[in-house]
Design a protein around this nucleic acid. Structure first.
Lengths: 237, 237
DNA sequence: AAGTGGTCTAGACCACCCG
DNA sequence: GGGTGGTCTAGACCACTTT
């Protein structure tokens, strides 16, 4: 494990354990350099990660302030699996696999996943139940080229876990968009939809570290149950 | 201007001018170090910014690949004013100021903006017209402590521009959330709402670089006209 | 084996904040 | 003036990809 990541994880852990109060200052970079017996640039790398993730705010001339933690947030930025989210948010959640099949992609999928003519894709539909209501419908499409096999057991647990830990795929980045749509008949059939007239859809394409797209996902959320949170930083220009 | 930022801007400019093709490799870090007559760490800082902004994908052992540019992105991450967005997306846009007044904040605002008991806030309501339809309602609340004066002319142009360039405020980061709500009577009155039964609301709190919150905004979008794009990177656990 | 990006070091100077 | 974070340097070793 790299030094700056162990420092990062140690600090995250201490912040979450309220080792420092909110609005309090972290030890200075020079102090941390001594404590972790490393160089200042390495400490800075860890602190910059913390800032990027919204744990601290660095203030020139003063120090690094611990930021008030929000909870029950559904992060927009960052690739996280439903299982990771459910765990970290301590949700009482349950997944049912509604469909698992190997299909011929339509042209939209072919272009999104840069497929050849006779490539096939896995289609997975899963309904997510939170507090005994089905409120999320996840539709995943994965290149058979890259994911040759999928089982219902894997889908019920965590596809991400399987991809990263069993197949060792280097998942790298994702392009996401959020739009609001009219619910389809499928949405109404598979979710507890009550009388809602809109559905919030997060569409994403996930890439490997060599920039190959291998997964297209639509995560369809009942509009009353979610808020999507983002932590944005003013960019240079 | 810092060296790594000038390098960053130069490379962004060259990528946008198609100096390198999509999927092509940038010159190596060592090569760029020579060309810009600097150190490798400085080049790497610029390249990491490019990767963070989705311009390139760095691949160990190979190099930095120029990523296919997506078009018409409405960035979630990054704080941008409507004017910046409208300009960069070349929209035919128009703003009307519906309300501008100095009010006593309710308790919700007091806590969001960390106000004292008799502090006042500016309230600004603006309707955004795109392609001759009023589809966005922006409601801004700004601390009078930090923004002592506001005029209708400023609000019609760009508040951000005024804050950054006239007042010189160091705008630093924002916490945003996206939720779907029922439209209010105000929404129906000020927007061309047709028959829609939901509205997409982006709520954000904007902070100065010393972590003081000074602005609370609700940007209310007609659901059919709304699209949000984000570029996410898999975080180390 | 050579070239690439990833990490780490030790030191330097700067701009900013505060007592 | 002393401490803080921001930038920059020159050099080193490593893991990975390609030839």
């Amino acid at each position: 494990m790299q030094k700056y990541l162990t420092i990062y994880h140690d600090l995250v852990h201490k912040i979450q354990k309220k080792y420092w109060q909110e609005d309090e200052l972290l030890p200075s970079e020079n102090e941390l350099t001594k404590r972790y017996n490393t160089s200042r640039e390495t400490v800075r790398k860890a602190l910059n990660l913390l800032a990027q993730d919204g744990f601290i705010q660095k203030i020139r001339g003063k120090g690094s302030v611990v930021i008030k933690a929000e909870k029950l947030d559904f992060p927009v930025s960052g690739i996280r699996s439903f299982k990771e989210l459910a765990t970290s948010m301590k949700l009482n959640a349950e997944t049912s696999v509604e469909d698992l099949s190997l299909i011929d992609p339509d042209s939209h999928l072919q272009s999104k996943l840069q497929l050849s003519l006779d490539d096939k894709v896995w289609k997975v539909s899963r309904a997510r139940k939170i507090a005994n209501e089905k409120v999320i419908l996840d539709k995943d499409f994965l290149s058979e080229n890259i994911v040759p096999k999928l089982t219902e057991a894997i889908c019920k647990d965590s596809i991400y876990d399987y991809l990263e830990n069993e197949l060792g795929l280097p998942i790298s980045f994702a392009h996401k968009e959020i739009i609001v749509e009219e619910p389809t008949d499928e949405d109404r059939g598979l979710l507890d939809f009550e009388g809602f007239s809109n559905i919030v859809v997060i569409k994403s394409v996930v890439y490997l570290s060599d920039a190959t797209p291998f997964q297209y996902t639509e995560s369809r959320h009942r509009p009353d149950k979610f808020r999507f949170v983002d932590f944005a930083r003013r960019m240079p220009n």
